[in-house]
């Protein structure tokens, strides 16, 4: 039985019409270490896809392929293609910085810029990329509201980003990535260091975001995957490179997966 040509069967008919992001036969290497094998996945526009799987199966590596962050690691290599609106982001003519402007990322650990205020943190992407956007005040309010942080910080926008709590910092980081208006937002276990309240807040944020943009979230938390995502992709490793076991609608993955390993994993039997 081969796992090499798994695709999102449930979405196969609609994908071509409004595919937000798509990978075809994507591989990843770190030096000689083959980390990820032959991933073909489609992420429909304006949906949330959860990437689940045990530690070390290449989930983070996979989403770092999607916004060209993989290549920062010395010795990294890849194969296959990643299509944003049908255009390969790894074409030689494509500017990686432009890709990252469209495909934003929120990291596992909150990383607000410590030398900037809350307001400056939200606007930092616009400044860094030299974007010309009017009404900075509106952008700050809009992004902080969408990240669910506005009410808590509206009276102290001049405070340092580092003065916030961990959950607030993570929502600030989400607000910061929204300010440049990405089309896709990648989230690498964004809630793993947060308390249940902040987690809930961020999950609500994710659902609201999906009305406008495509969200891809790596998570270790099965409940979280079932709560926030529309689609789920299950990765696994047998000691070798990580591969895709199956990808489908979240409901199907959690109630009636086609692969027994998926069933075992989502029921908490391993991983």
């Amino acid at each position: 039985m081969s796992n090499t040509s798994t695709t999102v069967s449930a979405t196969a008919n609609e994908t071509t019409a409004f595919a937000g992001l798509e990978t075809r036969g994507a591989h990843a290497w770190f030096g000689k270490h083959h980390a990820l094998r032959d991933i073909s996945l489609t992420f429909p526009a304006r949906t949330v896809t959860g990437i689940i799987g045990p530690s070390g199966c290449g989930k983070s590596t996979f989403i770092r392929l999607l916004n060209r962050m993989h290549e920062f690691i010395p010795g990294a290599a890849m194969a296959g293609s990643v299509l944003l609106h049908g255009n390969d982001i790894y074409e030689p003519t494509v500017d990686a910085a432009e890709v990252r402007l469209k495909v934003g990322m929120v990291f596992q650990k909150p990383n607000p810029f410590p030398a900037m205020t809350i307001r400056e943190n939200v606007l930092s992407g616009i400044k860094l990329a030299h974007l010309k956007r009017p009404n900075h005040d509106d952008i700050v309010e809009n992004c902080l509201t969408r990240a669910g942080l506005w009410k808590e910080v509206k009276d102290r926008l001049g405070a340092s980003g580092g003065s916030l709590s961990g959950g607030q910092q993570q929502r600030l980081c989400i607000a910061r990535s929204l300010a440049v208006e990405p089309e896709v937002l990648l989230m690498d276990e964004p809630c793993s260091a947060l308390d249940p309240g902040s987690t809930l807040r961020i999950e609500e944020t994710i659902k609201e975001l999906a009305e406008k943009i495509t969200v891809i979230i790596v998570t270790h938390n099965m409940q979280q995957a079932s709560r926030v995502s529309d689609y789920c992709a299950f990765f696994l490793t047998d000691g070798g490179p990580g591969y895709l076991v199956e990808a489908d609608s979240t409901r199907k993955i959690f109630t009636n997966p086609s692969d027994p390993r998926t069933a075992d994993y989502v029921q908490g039997k391993f991983g």
Binding site: W29, P92, D238
Partner: peptide, 19 residues
């Protein structure tokens, strides 16, 4: 099951400057 089906795929670095 965990076969070496992908052995033919060569690692590439599309981000490095072409020769």
């Amino acid at each position: 099951m965990s076969s070496e089906t992908a052995a033919t795929v060569e690692p590439q670095t599309p981000w490095s400057t072409p020769r």
